[in-house]
Design a protein around this nucleic acid. Structure first.
Length: 296
DNA sequence: CCTTGAACCTGGGCGC
DNA sequence: TGCGCCCAGGTTCAAG
C-alpha cells in the first residue's frame, strides 16, 4: 500500500492521537518484522512522550522526548490504525471489523495525550515493514536515511537536479524514477502515473532527457512538474479522508480511483484524443503500465 | 560502476 | 471446495 503519499496520509492521521501523547505501554507481539526489533525496543519507548511525527521518503519518523527517533517503514502491506477511546464512544460510531486481520497486529502503542487515550495498532500481513531506533542527531547519517534523494514534494525537486542525476544514465526512466537515491518516495504506481502525465515512455533511457551540456530538456521539465503534481494530488486525496481519524491507514483516501494507467491493462488510454490501449510490461521484475501510443 | 533476479512473507484472485 | 499458480503499493543482496 504505501508510497510517499500514503505514508504522509498515515502521518497526518496519527498526528492528533500521537503528538504530545505519552506512551503508557507498548505491546510487541512478535520478535521481528522484516528485521528483529531493536534491543530494548519496549523499554526505550514506554513512558516517553511523543514530541513530533515526521516523514522522510516512505519512512515515518516518530520523535520522542529523549531525542530517540523511531523509524517506521511500512513495507508493502503495513498500516496503522487508531482506536481512540473518545471516537469509540461517539454515538453512531461505525465500528470497523478488523477481526480477520488481527493476527497481523504486531505492535500496539497505548498512548494518552491531548486527544485522550488511544491504541495505535501496527498491522502488517507480509511483514516487509520494520521499525528501528536512532537519535535525532544521528538521523541524517542513518544508513537507511543518508542516501535518500530529493523529496518530490514542495520545492525540493528541480529539473536541474534530475538532469545531474540522469546524465549518462542508460537505465530506463522507470528504473531511474524508482531509485530512492534519486527521488525518495516514488513507488511503482506514481512512477507509472507521472510518466503517463508527461507522455514519456517508461522504456526510454534517462539520459535522453539531458542535453549534451548536461541541461534538462523541456521534456524533463515536464516530467519534474508531473511528478510534483501527481504526488501533490495523491496527498490531497489521502488527506481528504482523514477527517475520519478512525481510519489512519490511508485506505479510504487511496488514490486508486484516479489512476490513469496503473492496473488498467487492456483498457483505453484516458488521454484526450488518444486511441491507445494501456499495456502491461515487466521492467526489472515489476509491472509497468503505459500507453505505447502517446508515451514516447 | 550497472543491471537483473531472487529473496523476504502472506493473502487474494483465477483457472481447472 | 480445493489446489496450484500468479500477482501485489518495497527494499536488499548476490551474481553476472
Amino acid at each position: 500500500m504505501p508510497e510517499l503519499p500514503e505514508v504522509e496520509t498515515v502521518r497526518r492521521g496519527l498526528q492528533p492521537a500521537m503528538e504530545g501523547a505519552r506512551v503508557e505501554r507498548l505491546e510487541m507481539r512478535r520478535p521481528d518484522l522484516r528485521f528483529p526489533f531493536p534491543e530494548k525496543f519496549v523499554e526505550r519507548i514506554e513512558g516517553r512522550r511523543i514530541t513530533h511525527l515526521q516523514r522522510r521518503a516512505k519512512y515515518l519518523l516518530i520523535g520522542l522526548d529523549d531525542e530517540t527517533v523511531l523509524i517506521s517503514h511500512l513495507g508493502m502491506s503495513g498500516s496503522y490504525h487508531v482506536d481512540a477511546e473518545a471516537v469509540r464512544n461517539t454515538p453512531g460510531h461505525f465500528h470497523v471489523d478488523r477481526s480477520k486481520n488481527e493476527k497481523h497486529d504486531h505492535v500496539v502503542f497505548h498512548v494518552d495525550g491531548p486527544a485522550g487515550k488511544a491504541r495505535i495498532v501496527y498491522n502488517d500481513p507480509r511483514r516487509f515493514g520494520f521499525m528501528l531506533l536512532t537519535t535525532s542527531n544521528a538521523l541524517d547519517d542513518h544508513p537507511f536515511i543518508r542516501d535518500l534523494g530529493a523529496e518530490p514534494v514542495g520545492n525540493a525537486l528541480h529539473a536541474d537536479y534530475l538532469a545531474s542525476r540522469f546524465a549518462g544514465k542508460a537505465a530506463p526512466l522507470k528504473a531511474a524514477l524508482l531509485d530512492q537515491k534519486i527521488i525518495a518516495g516514488l513507488g511503482n504506481i506514481y512512477v507509472c502515473e507521472a510518466l503517463w502525465r508527461s507522455r514519456l515512455s517508461p522504456r526510454r533511457s534517462a539520459a535522453t532527457l539531458v542535453t549534451s551540456r548536461g541541461r534538462p530538456t523541456r521534456r524533463l521539465e515536464d516530467l519534474t512538474q508531473a511528478i510534483r503534481a501527481v504526488i501533490a494530488a495523491a496527498i490531497e486525496a489521502g488527506g481528504s479522508s482523514l477527517q475520519d481519524h478512525r481510519q489512519a491507514d490511508g485506505t479510504l483516501g487511496y488514490f486508486q480511483h484516479s489512476f490513469n494507467v496503473y492496473d488498467r491493462e487492456g483498457e483505453p488510454c484516458r488521454r484526450e484524443g488518444c486511441s491507445g490501449t494501456i499495456q502491461r510490461i515487466v521492467q526489472s521484475g515489476r509491472s509497468t503500465f503505459y500507453c505505447p501510443r502517446c508515451q514516447r
